[in-house]
Amino acid sequence: MQDLRGNFLPSFTTIRDKMRSPAEKARLACWRKNKGYQANLACQIGRLGHRQIENYFNNGDKSCPVILQRHWEKALPVLNKIHNIRLVESPIFHYYEGYAGRVDCVGKFDNLPDEMVFEFKFSDRIRIYDEQKLQLAAYTAGLNRHYGHPYNVQINSGILITITPNEVDITFIDRLEMNKYWKQWQKQVNQFWLQYPNIA
């Protein structure tokens, strides 16, 4: 990802893809091969879903493509509980650790007092992976580093929202769990830069 000054940093996804074990890469390739059209459809729904949420938070647009309709009907009641939104689909750069990302949303949820990082996932069924929590920890730390001093941002928790055609799952990540995954992410980033020192 490129910042406003023309500097490049590898994204969360780039680092994760590079650091997967051979067994993980084989499983992912097998899944894509077996799913075929369904895998492409899932990616399309994910992209459309994120664009839809961005439009909704920015201008209140509730209309959506037919392909997304069932997911969107389930998502709206949950999205309506998110308020005091500060960022939507915004890039973050953690120059000290050496990675970048695009955070889905920063705001407050329902009657909870603290600001949180929100990560939205679109799927055909509820599945919570460690990688999703790793991503949330990486983006939270990136936000605190990128926006901390000028904007008084200090976020310690997050919410992973998984949206399917049938239901929505809301998984809270508290400070302790966030710290656990942040340490794991730091190790991966450090290992990445040892293996790929000239990638940026």
Results as ranks from 00 to 15, higher is better:
S21M: 05
Y181I: 04
V117F: 04
K183N: 12
F122E: 04
Y96E: 15
I173E: 03
N80S: 11
D61T: 14
V168N: 00
D3Y: 02
I128L: 13
I53F: 07
G49H: 03
G46V: 03
D114Q: 05
R20K: 15
Q69S: 15
K62M: 09
L143N: 00
I82V: 10
I199W: 14
G148I: 01
K62I: 11
F93W: 07
L9A: 09
K108T: 04
G148Q: 00
F118A: 01
D17T: 12
F8Y: 14
G107Q: 01
D114C: 03
A141H: 14
T162Y: 05
R27I: 13
K35S: 12
R86N: 08
C43E: 14
G46F: 07
K133R: 11
I199G: 02
H83Y: 06
H146S: 00
N144V: 00
K180Y: 14
L68T: 04
Y151H: 03
Q135G: 05
C30H: 11
K81T: 08
R32F: 09
D110N: 10
H146Q: 01
I155E: 00
T14V: 13
I173F: 09
N111D: 10
P65M: 04
Y37S: 13
Y147N: 01
E24S: 12
L41H: 12
K183C: 07
N111L: 13
I45H: 09
N179I: 05
K35Y: 08
F118M: 05
F12A: 04
F12L: 08
W72T: 01
G49P: 00
M1S: 14
F172L: 14
V103P: 00
T171Q: 11
F192P: 02
R27V: 12
N58E: 10
F8P: 07
L48N: 08
K187C: 13
K25G: 06
D130Q: 08
T13A: 06
A75G: 03
L194D: 13
W193D: 04
E119L: 06
E97H: 10
A75I: 06
Q44T: 10
A100E: 01
V117I: 12
P150G: 00
I45Y: 04
S157T: 08
F120L: 05
N156D: 13
E167D: 12
Y196E: 10
D110K: 05
Y181K: 04
K18G: 10
Y96C: 11
S21V: 07
I92G: 04
A141K: 13
S21K: 04
R51A: 11
D174M: 03
N156C: 14
L48V: 09
Y99F: 13
G49W: 03
